[in-house]
C-alpha cells in the first residue's frame, strides 16, 4: 500500500535579482529583475508503507523543498501529492495529527524552557490521552537515554541532546509518516550513531514510513535500503544504494601486490594509477576491461595478492553530484547564450 504518491510535483520561486552597490539598490526600487528558480522540477515518486527512504543530493537540489511540500508548509507551483490520502498543502488537522517533520537546523522546542514543558504543550495540541502520552514519552526518553536532561532548559543542552529532544517532541503523537531533514547535521560521530540506532530501532518496531534527507552517507547506508538521488530538482536515481555504484561508476579499483618488488613501470596502460607504494599498486580500471586486465596481470607478473573493489560510495556520489551540477550550469549558460543571441538578432533587425 502506498503511503506517499507524488506526480509531476513542481515548485519554482521568483527571486529578486539584487545588484551590487548602493546606486543599483536605488534603481532596484523602480525597476526590478526577477529570476525564476526551479527548486523542484517535476518529481514522481511512490513510497510504500513501512519504507525507509533516503533523499540524497547536493545543497540546493530540492530535497528540503520536497519535504516541505509533503508537510504542507509550502504549496507547489504544479503537480500532485498525496500522503496518507491527504493533499498536504490543504493542511487538514486530520493529516497534521498523523505525520511529523524534524529539521536538524531548526528547533521547535521552547528555547528557554525545559523540554518536558514543550512535550506537555504537544500533548495538549495533539490531544494525546494522558496515559498514552506518559507511556510514549517514557519509552522515547528511555530509548534515547535523556531522562536526566528533561528538566534542563533547552538552550543549555548540547546539539546532540537537543536533537534527541526534538525527535521525542516529534514522535509523541506516534506519527505514521516521519519526515527527517538532516537530523544528524553538525553532530559528532557518537551522537550520529546514537540517532541512527534509535531511528533504525524505532522504524522497525513501529513499521512507520520515513523519508530522510542527509549529507552523511553513513546515515543512509545504516538506515535505508532505498535511495532517491535528487539533483537539480529532478530524480536521477531511485533504487538501492549498491545500485548507485553499478549505475554511476564506470570503473573498479584493482589492487595488486607484486612479488619480489618487481613492479612493472608501465602500469598506466591498465588504467589510471591511484596509489603507488611498492610492492602495492592501486589502479582505476575501466569496468568493461576488468576481466582482460586481470588476466593480463595474472599471466605476466608474479603476484602475491590481488583484489578488485568498487570505488567508495561517497566518491561515486560526489562525482555524480559534480556531473549534474555541471550539466545544469551548461544548460543555464546555453539559455543565457540563446537569449543573448536573440537580443543581438533583434538589435540587428
Amino acid at each position: 500500500m502506498s503511503v506517499i504518491e507524488i506526480h509531476g510535483l513542481r515548485k519554482s520561486y521568483r527571486v529578486y535579482q539584487k545588484k551590487e552597490g548602493l546606486l543599483a539598490s536605488f534603481s532596484g526600487l523602480f525597476h526590478r529583475e526577477y529570476r525564476e528558480v526551479n527548486a523542484v522540477k517535476g518529481i514522481d515518486l511512490t513510497v510504500d508503507k513501512g519504507e525507509f527512504v533516503a533523499f540524497l543530493g547536493p545543497n540546493g537540489a530540492g530535497k528540503t523543498t520536497t519535504l516541505k511540500l509533503l508537510s504542507g508548509v509550502i504549496t507547489p507551483t504544479a503537480g500532485e501529492a498525496r500522503v496518507l490520502g491527504y493533499v498536504p498543502w490543504e493542511r487538514e488537522n486530520d493529516y497534521r495529527r498523523r505525520f511529523a517533520l524534524v529539521m536538524g537546523q531548526k528547533n521547535q522546542l521552547w528555547w528557554d524552557l525545559p523540554a518536558q514543558e514543550s512535550f506537555q504543550l504537544h500533548q495538549k495540541i495533539y490531544g494525546i490521552e494522558p496515559t498514552a502520552f506518559k507511556q510514549t514519552k517514557d519509552e522515547l526518553v528511555d530509548l534515547l537515554g535523556v531522562a536526566k536532561l528533561l528538566g534542563q532548559p533547552v538552550r543549555e543542552l548540547s546539539l546532540g541532546e537537543r536533537m534527541k529532544m526534538e525527535l521525542i517532541a516529534a514522535l509523541l503523537h506516534s506519527p505514521e509518516v516521519l519526515f527527517l531533514d538532516e537530523p544528524t547535521i553538525g553532530l559528532d560521530v557518537v551522537a550520529q550513531h546514537n540517532i541512527q540506532k534509535f531511528l533504525k530501532h524505532y522504524q522497525q518496531v513501529r513499521g512507520i514510513t520515513i523519508l530522510l534527507t542527509s549529507h552523511y552517507m553513513k546515515d543512509v547506508a545504516a538506515l535505508c535500503k532505498r535511495v532517491v538521488i535528487i539533483a537539480g530538482g529532478e530524480i536521477v536515481h531511485d533504487g538501492s544504494l549498491e545500485g548507485v555504484i553499478d549505475r554511476f561508476s564506470d570503473y573498479k579499483i584493482l589492487t595488486v601486490d607484486f612479488a619480489d618488488d618487481r613492479m612493472p613501470s608501465d602500469l598506466a596502460r591498465f588504467g589510471e594509477v591511484r596509489e603507488l607504494a611498492p610492492p602495492r599498486a592501486k589502479i582505476e580500471v575501466d569496468r568493461n576491461q576488468i576481466a582482460s586486465v586481470l588476466t593480463n596481470v595474472l599471466a605476466n607478473y608474479s603476484i602475491l595478492d590481488v583484489s578488485v573493489e568498487d570505488p567508495p560510495l561517497e566518491e561515486v556520489i560526489a562525482s555524480l553530484f559534480a556531473l549534474t551540477e555541471k550539466q545544469q550550469r551548461d544548460s543555464q549558460d546555453a539559455n543565457i547564450a540563446t537569449t543573448a543571441a536573440n537580443v543581438a538578432a533583434a538589435g540587428k533587425n
Binding site: K68, S71, G72, V73, R91, N93, D94, R96, R97, A100, L101, M103, K106, Q108, I125, Y126, G127
Partner: peptide, 8 residues
C-alpha cells in the same frame, strides 16, 4: 514551518 505542522 513548525506552526503550520500543528493540528490546531
Amino acid at each position: 514551518d513548525f506552526a503550520l505542522l500543528k493540528p490546531i
